[in-house]
Design a protein around this nucleic acid. Sequence first.
RNA 1: GGGGCCGUGGUCUAGCUUGGUAGGAUGCCGGCCUUGGGAGCCGGAGGUCCCGGGUUCAAAUCCCGGCGGCCCCA
Length: 479
Amino acid sequence: MSERKAFEVTPKEVEFSRWFDEVIFKAEILDERYPVKGMYVWLPYGYQLMENIMNVMERLLRETGHRRVYFPGVVPESVLGREFRFIKGFEDSIFWITALGRKKIQERLALRPTSEAIMYEVLKRWITSYKDLPLRIYQIVPVYRYETKATRPMLRVREIVFFKEGHTFHATYEDAVKQVDLEVEIYKKFYDELLVPYIVVKTPPWDTFPGAKYNYDIVTIMPDGKALELGSAINFGDLFAKTYDLVYMDQNGEKRYVNTTSFGISERSLAAMISIHGDNRGLKIPPKLAPIQVVIVPIPTKGYEDKVNEFSKSLHERLSSRFRVVLDDEDERPGFKFYRWEMKGVPARIEVGREETEKQFVTVARRDTGERVKINLSELEEELEKLFEDIEDTMKKQAENYFNERVYHAESIEEVKEHVTQKMVSFPWCGLDECGHEVEEEAGYGLLGYEEGYYEGSGKKCIVCGREAKHRAWIARSY
RNA sequence: GGGGCCGUGGUCUAGCUUGGUAGGAUGCCGGCCUUGGGAGCCGGAGGUCCCGGGUUCAAAUCCCGGCGGCCCCA
């Protein structure tokens, strides 16, 4: 009945969540069998992939003047506690340390759920003058949130392992506004490199991060039609600074509150990449991000084993200086290896058998289309580079089609209700809370946010009140 | 938050209703043979039946609690 082959998975279109779980296990991204709910083991291949992704992010951050730091993972309650007043039920989502050794603790310690509190506490000693601003720092660390809802690998976890949290500090509100715009630009470039399609929305006032002036969310859509938040950029204004007494002295010798922002992403970025590009054979990884870009599979016909092996080895050596390449010389059937490396999403596979050895060429199979091409040895590197570019273009187009198939631009509440169970739906909105709430109530789901001023001057009407529409709002079922 | 299903070698599972020797497939190890899309044959290892308690002469099986996983609805 369920006598499935090693690399066979539940079809994506049949049951997406099962497909996702099986693929991330069989592609050796995560071992989900860790005995604590909502926590998972990152396997070498998955870890490497996530590192490659984070390297893209770090490059973008360095280029824009952000510097990496490390703040400890444990925060005293007295420091974290000041944040509580902003967030309902915040305390219940914290992992608390209540004992040290056999002694009960005097002041509870928290595993960081995010690092604003502890950073601000320390930074008020770093920042004294306008000359200390702007300050842009980030760290990539695990954070802990006691999720009470059903947990899902990478999507809803209790330990976010790759949490990139950026925190910035500015003299004026205007500077903070510019910074948040920069953060959005960074995220756009990041997800463009991951070939993950997205929308950028401002969250509605009633759903804005507590304590924030406003925030932007990057949102994508998963194969099952549910929206997934991939990152956010938050402008706190001087609100957090007031709470933590973060002040600086301006040119006139007057004390002013610092304006702050923060922006975060996590391994959800990988979850989106896997979900959007993967198929029923497994992962498809963009060549630039692939831990292994090329796998060489020898096909040793009887009597030619030595020649084939020799050829494979020389290829491996030759390509290693330019690509991330693996020679799979395990004693398994070629077909079995093909399935294994397809599951792992390796973009290109080089097949080397008797024919290639004799005529001095290679057969290259590409993961994205399954197509095979013959490449002359003399132009191997150049052709591989071209192939990778072509794979990237193809994947990008596929992602665009994927995205367009899953969004719908509604012109009425009826259309919203009709499509919201399947797709991510946009609609013209006047911007009034009551109209937003009306759509939420009718649709049964919350607004994701809106693209500010998208319909300004277009003549479009709000689908609720009929007044002139200002924004393009988005609504969907979500994770 | 509400409802439902489930937990048996690494993986997938049979057995549970009606208590009595844990069985298969796959994977793994050794050998032979082979290799252009998941081969085959021979031999072998691998189990706290999720954990704890209860009922019983006897529990994978029945009852209670916990832990873990999944699905549907808000």
